[in-house]
Nucleic acid binder design. Structure first.
Lengths: 161, 161
DNA sequence: GGCGTTTCTGCAACTCGTTGCGTCTGGTCA
DNA sequence: TGACCAGACGCAACGAGTTGCAGAAACGCC
């Protein structure tokens, strides 16, 4: 695993955003260390969802001395700065979502494990619906709904079981 | 396999429902063992939400020889029979919900960890909203929305931070 | 460049939950 | 009553993630 081949994602603003990480850390009195650089490096080449252990693995590919506790602690810091967000998948594993440009929720298929985004408008509608009757502020970026996707439904319907 | 058989059971007959567990197991070619009796015993005296490890602890209080793997495997079986349902809390821990009389989702406060039920009507509205635009069958009993409850919001508002 | 402060790291130990495997036993049939 | 066998059990090892602590090092200051 190396610098080049990961997803050919980067929009210009995205790299710019990542370059700001160091400054943001300094501004908060936090430090810029080789270990954090490694993780930011990995994250900057990642799009969509990754689990915590996947990130640990990718960091180890760059620096084999990487330890899990450092990665998870750095992820906490980056989450506080808004560079990643996390939620728990169906199996309870942590899933990190890199650079949430806009707040959105997720649909999660419990059969195939697939994941799709819920549009901000839909998250908003759900939040409004629930907030209407009670005093509760819905965290719009944490809306995760599980069920079964079209493909898995088709497979199940086809199988007489 | 669904919750349908017990969904119609009124609350007074809850104990009766548990007495049926043995028969339901037999009907499925499964066995009634002392370990399962212990867990069913614990569950029959539990309402609302419990974590897996809490259940292990309570079983150990009755039978100190209880092992976690047996408890979790039995919970899987009971979930398949519809006697419990589980979802993952904010911290990724498993949370079991005993005897889901009707399908409902949850509101979860990320500050205090509190949990409230979402009415079936609301779960339904959310499901309808999401299923409208796409091919996806929402699992209505797994709708879990996080945010902050009124109390925690008040506390945060009061603190100048 | 050297120094002091404070954050961060790495390790080890821990929790929660899962899985593989050999052994045991509940339930059935003769 | 005894034998059989699939299902269940207990153990041990594992994976993901967390935490406490002692030592390392980033960074501001002189």
């Amino acid at each position: 695993m190396t610098t080049q081949d990961i997803a050919a994602v980067p929009r210009p603003e995205r790299d710019a955003a990542w370059n700001l990480v160091r400054e943001r850390l300094h501004a908060s009195g936090l430090r810029w260390t080789p270990q954090r650089r490694t993780l930011v490096d990995v994250l900057s080449r990642t799009s969509g969802h990754v689990t915590g252990s996947e990130l640990v693995d990718r960091c180890r590919a760059i620096d084999p001395a990487t330890t899990p506790s450092t990665v998870y602690r750095t992820l906490d810091v980056l989450e506080e700065l808004g560079y990643v967000s996390h939620h728990h998948g169906m199996d309870g594993r942590e899933e990190f979502h890199v650079l949430p440009i806009e707040e959105h929720g997720h649909l999660h298929c419990r059969s195939c494990g697939g994941s799709w985004q819920i549009s901000p408008a839909e998250s908003d509608a759900i939040a409004t619906l629930l907030e209407g009757g009670r005093s509760f502020a819905v965290d719009r970026s944490h809306v995760t709904i599980t069920g079964r996707c079209a493909d898995c439904l088709a497979v199940e319907a086809a199988r007489p079981d």
